[in-house]
Design a protein around this nucleic acid. Structure first.
Lengths: 223, 223
DNA sequence: ACGCATGATACTGCATCCATAATTATGAAT
DNA sequence: ATTCATAATTATGGATGCAGTATCATGCGT
């Protein structure tokens, strides 16, 4: 059921998986922009492979929602409408909220120490107004929480949703004051976890995500 | 972003999609049992197609979690462990709960009438102890609610989760007394919707799903 | 008799090839 | 000049072929 298989370390990933990963990277880097047509032949030549594994990779990306396959008309990078974003974020908020709730139930003092260390990093990067490093530490925080929550299916859905959100070119962390605000929200979540208060952890995390969506909306207006 | 394209009615689905659908049907019918190896060649011959579209279909099913692809070792129907079920149901409960919450916000009297009609069907089939028809009406109830909630991304995740759950051979509705219990839970949800009480709708739906998981667990013990 | 090595078989994964549909370019007619 | 029809080009979707690897069977050695 889950992707991680112990023996997988030895077996190198199938070519179509490698290709999918390379394409994901290019899509997230917005080198392949939303709406852009994906030229199978050109990519096959560039990667030095045939179209077969490339097409299989595109099927995978389509399932993830990163591209859309138009029958007989080719493959295009997904364009997120404002409505799409308004649909994804509430779902993301609910899922991440559940993660926080589960984590609050299961968290140990060692887990808390790990999270607190990551939070220290967040504080440092926020103080330095380094959005990139803040983003990276933020990711680690949420990943660590998923580990503690211990629900792989939930984690998978969240990671898929995150991929979709990444299609947006906008980065809310760059918004004036958002870094500090995000930090304060993380503080809230952390405190709820310290107190092992699932309901509060759930609520804090949910609101944190919706706050992120609002920041994104403000950013859209600013542009 | 979403799969439904208006023009899709004219364009017949790609072959790999048709194949994926046929395979889904066979998997849900447990004709292809969990753990069973999927013989690409044999299926290609049976369907009168080449292995290429078949392999593409398997990639799609793998993304849905219905099969697992073991590199160089072929494709197998997913086996759900008890732990897997324990991970999927809480997520399902949270997602369906969100649907109920959103629906309670947006529901109109016409919507409510539609739901009430479906609930009447549920009552009829419960009285007749007809689990099959109850199941079908139950599906309609949840689908209608998704429509009212109006979040396609949410609906998609739920439908994917439903597919995964369908891998289980067990049917909780066949459990003694479960039909009546399920009906009562639906009654609760419906009342919350009538009162346009999002919090209560959310809670009722969440508990309804977890109650379904418990029924499944009782069924497992009975066997 | 049992375990291990070696060879045969079969399947997966990728490349190549071909048919068909879509798009673009060209030309004719109004 | 613009629009429509038609032809040429190009890209997608599917079929076929082939190389590499995993599995299974057979036989040898202990």
């Amino acid at each position: 059921m889950n992707a991680r298989t112990p023996s997988k370390i030895l077996v190198l990933p199938a070519l179509y998986e490698q290709v999918a990963e390379r394409l994901r990277t290019r899509i997230f880097a917005h080198e392949l922009q939303p709406g852009a047509w994906i030229d199978e032949q050109a990519l096959a030549v560039e990667y030095g492979i045939s179209r077969t594994p490339l097409r299989e990779a595109l099927k995978v990306l389509a399932a993830e929602g990163l591209v859309v396959l138009k029958p007989r008309r080719g493959c295009y990078v997904t364009e997120l409408s404002e409505q799409d974003i308004d649909e994804v974020f509430p779902v993301m908020a609910v899922l991440e909220g559940k993660v926080a709730e589960l984590a609050a139930h299961r968290i140990t003092s060692a887990d808390y120490a790990r999270l607190a260390a990551i939070h220290d990093d967040l504080e440092k990067h926020a103080a330095a107004s380094n959005a990139d490093r803040f983003f990276e530490a933020n990711q680690r925080f949420h990943d660590a929480l998923q580990d503690i929550a211990g629900n792989r299916y939930l984690a998978q859905l969240i990671n898929d949703a995150r991929k979709v959100i990444k299609l947006t070119r906008r980065d809310s962390l760059r918004l004036e004051g958002r870094l500090k605000q995000s930090l304060a929200e993380h503080r809230d979540i952390l405190d709820a976890l310290r107190d092992k208060d699932p309901a509060r952890a759930q609520r804090s995390m949910h609101d944190h995500l919706m706050s992120g969506r609002n920041a994104l909306a403000r950013l859209a207006k600013a542009n």
